[in-house]
């Protein structure tokens, strides 16, 4: 059996809004595909199509070898869905939620109970198992939601922003669970707004922005594409001016970090000395400057923002704010 996910030219419109505009996705069996993008990029729409919840307006998608529009029942037997849209029943306890799903999937009463017990243990929900889910904290709900999606031991798992809004400790716990599923041989499609998450978990990343794929590749490939090295400076003053000079010298949009560090990809080895000279000429004092490999964060910005069109273009800055918020 092939646990693959393939989508070609997916199109989805809501009224006159185009949520997906020809998206191709591919996840090899047993791999993790990270679908990365800001809010409203179309990530959730893509997951909903692949999980047979909505039909595409164009394109084809096969999950586990089955066409999502022609054989949705076959697809549903293979998948587990978790995240923003699949949810738990608030009025049931954690244990009852797990029992219900087990029974719906055809387990007998005793096996369903055993399965629930097992998942309660693995997800650290022992103390909350007999409380109604509406009393759970955000992190506990996500854990329960993920546990519920694993009751049927699905071979293909869709996780739609499973860790959005969670604190780092809970995120790390959920990452462990994702890694366990990969070790078990499951194929995972994970959407996220967090670059770090995609970097940590994904074998391959597809970057979606406004319904279109803007880049794809392994985390390393994406980092490489953003430039071999980056010039980082920390000006003592006149940060705006320094940023403008870097943009002029490199022709790319610099990224300004919260710590006052301005960085920009440098493809040509002659550029850093030139940039430093220009900054010196302008009388800008640097408390720090360095050349280093890019982070995925910077790769993302460089790929989404493409070449700088002067400093009036705030799209990339806004995208960065949304993610850091």
């Amino acid at each position: 059996m092939s646990n693959t996910i393939e989508a070609e030219g997916l199109v989805k419109r809501y009224g006159d809004k185009t949520a997906l505009d020809g998206v191709d996705l591919e996840a090899r069996a047993g791999s993790v595909l990270g679908v990365l993008g800001p809010n409203g990029a179309g990530k959730t729409t893509a997951v909903r199509i692949l999980a047979t919840l909505v039909g595409p307006d164009g394109g084809v998608a096969r999950v586990g070898g089955h066409d999502v529009t022609r054989e949705p029942a076959k697809v549903r037997e293979l998948i587990g869905l978790t995240g923003q849209y699949a949810s738990v029943d608030e009025k049931l306890t954690g244990r009852q939620n797990l029992m219900m799903i087990g029974r719906l999937l055809g387990l007998g009463r005793a096996p369903a109970r055993a399965r629930a017990e097992d998942l309660i243990g693995r997800f650290g929900l022992q103390n909350a198992a007999d409380r109604a889910a509406q009393t759970y904290s955000g992190g506990m709900r996500r854990r329960l939601d993920l546990a519920v999606s694993l009751v049927g031991e699905p071979s293909i798992i869709f996780m739609d922003e499973p860790t959005t809004g969670l604190d780092p400790q809970v995120r790390a716990e959920l990452w462990t669970v994702v890694r366990e599923q990969i070790a078990r041989g499951a194929t995972v499609l994970l959407t996220t707004q967090y670059l770090e998450e995609a970097d940590q978990l994904a074998d391959e990343i597809v970057l979606i922005d406004r319904g279109k794929v803007s880049a794809r590749g392994t985390p390393d490939e994406l980092k490489a594409r953003a430039g071999d090295r980056r010039l980082e400076i920390r000006p003592e003053h006149d940060a705006e001016k320094a940023e403008r000079i870097l943009a002029e010298v490199t022709g790319l949009r610099p990224h300004r970090g919260e710590n006052g560090v301005i960085s920009v990809p440098v493809l040509d080895p002659a550029l850093p000395p030139a940039a430093l000279r220009r900054l010196d000429d302008a009388g800008i004092v640097l408390t720090e400057h360095a050349l280093r490999r890019p982070t995925l964060d910077e790769a993302f910005l460089a790929l989404v923002a493409a070449p700088a069109e002067g400093l009036t273009d705030h799209t990339a800055a806004n995208a960065a704010e949304r993610r850091s918020a």
Binding site: T52, A73, R76, I79, A86, L104
Partner: peptide, 8 residues
């Protein structure tokens, strides 16, 4: 949506 994504 959870129910709809399941083979029931």
């Amino acid at each position: 949506d959870r129910f709809r994504s399941m083979p029931i």
